[in-house]
Design a protein around this nucleic acid. Structure first.
Lengths: 225, 225
DNA sequence: TCCTTTCCCGACCGGTCGTTCGGTGCCCAT
DNA sequence: ATGGGCACCGAACGACCGGTCGGGAAAGGA
């Protein structure tokens, strides 16, 4: 029963085998395994026993590194949020004309999303069930608002298409960018920097300027020049 | 304890009160309540007892209408998937030039997403934990592939910006459209048809044609003038 | 060498999970 | 009025949940 555990992956094997010199866990390495599991099965659907198994430990051993299951989640979400907020502090996101700042912000957001893929993925799936999740949701809302304000500033500079409310534009933009976490896997042919450049460009082009008369242009509003 | 249940909403009250003539449930009405709860707390995190409470029933009563918790999920996901696939069958999505078909498909997808908001929202959150979820994921993948093929056909017609791989364009497009389920609530100032028109326009404009030289255009490639 | 600290384990706790079951009351056709 | 069936209930099931605890192996400085 408990013997027939499935092929337990990567980290666990590296730890189990005495050949390699890393017999013990530290919180961050355990976090890596845990977040992997949370993404695979969902946070609620992942039991402490499964976390232990994936790490090659008994479930009680987890509590040596983390005081509770929720604490693991908190640490993971905090890591994602810190990385995202760091982007807001970057010089190119704070200075210069709004459109350029927005482009930088989007591009760097995608890059961070890829760099911290598991953690950001987990963040984007949070729905507000526990105090930790509500806290993360609230912090994430602040980030979204910063993006929305930059979109609004871009709109004031005439960088938004007619009839597109800035708030809506920001949501569509963020939705597109965030959805990357659902399919992007590093190691593919597309580098993070390339993806970031393309996604930011596609997004900004979509919400900006006059609608080009494609065959598919349904919006009646057509800017004169 | 069990008395202090929070203000339980809408449907439950309507059913509880003898004033209105609908004292009994049928599967579809119960489904409505259940899906509401699944979205609120997540499928795994919602217990049968909570479902019952939200419906004004004991948890054992749920089993009079559904054979299992997973069956409820299956029915909800099936409803969403059926509605989406119906769009693929629409005449304007099958005939005509690819760009126009793509525009129709996107617009109608948004409209369906809004019409069947709770069910589609649930579908978009499925991660593949159970057999039902895997089935839904597989079926959804077919829908996504149909969109991707239409994007590819649009690309062949020269309707895609340079350097944007059709598969990537389709993912960004779908990501943007699907993200609408995370914030749109009916009853607001924005009608479903308007939202659909705008979202489809923004998305198609984003992936199509040459990049306009905005201040935020970072792609080294700068078109002559 | 010995002893402290770090890391990990199995056994166990109260509680909750999805599900089952025997029984009860209401609605409605007869 | 009455009998049958539909909708519902409370109690109970085994399994499993997150978390606790006392103890044991292994590492590391002395």
């Amino acid at each position: 029963m408990s013997i027939c555990r499935p092929i337990l992956g990567d980290v666990a094997d590296r730890v189990r085998s005495a050949a390699i010199k890393r017999p013990r866990y530290d919180p961050d390495r355990l976090l890596e395994v845990a977040v992997q599991q949370f993404i695979l099965r969902g946070y609620e659907a992942t039991s402490m026993a499964q976390l232990g198994e994936a790490a090659g430990l008994g479930k009680s051993s987890i509590y040596h590194h983390f005081p509770s299951k929720e604490a693991i989640l908190h640490r993971a979400l905090s890591r994602a949020l810190d990385a995202l907020f760091a982007v807001l502090e970057e010089e190119q996101a704070r200075l210069g004309p709004p459109p350029a700042r927005l482009e930088h912000l989007l591009r760097r957001t995608v890059e961070v999303l890829v760099e911290e893929l598991p953690y950001v993925t987990l963040l984007l799936r949070v729905r507000g069930n526990s105090r930790t999740e509500i806290w993360a949701l609230e912090r994430r809302r602040h980030f979204d608002r910063a993006v929305a304000e930059l979109v609004a500033a871009t709109a004031n500079a005439g960088g938004l298409r007619q009839g597109l409310e800035p708030g809506l534009g920001a949501r569509l933009l963020l939705g597109m960018v965030n959805s990357i976490s659902e399919w992007y896997r590093p190691g593919g042919p597309l580098s993070a920097a390339d993806l970031a450049r393309i996604a930011a460009s596609v997004g900004l082009h979509g919400i900006s300027g006059a609608a080009r008369a494609g065959a598919a242009e349904a919006t009646g509003a057509k800017i004169g020049r």
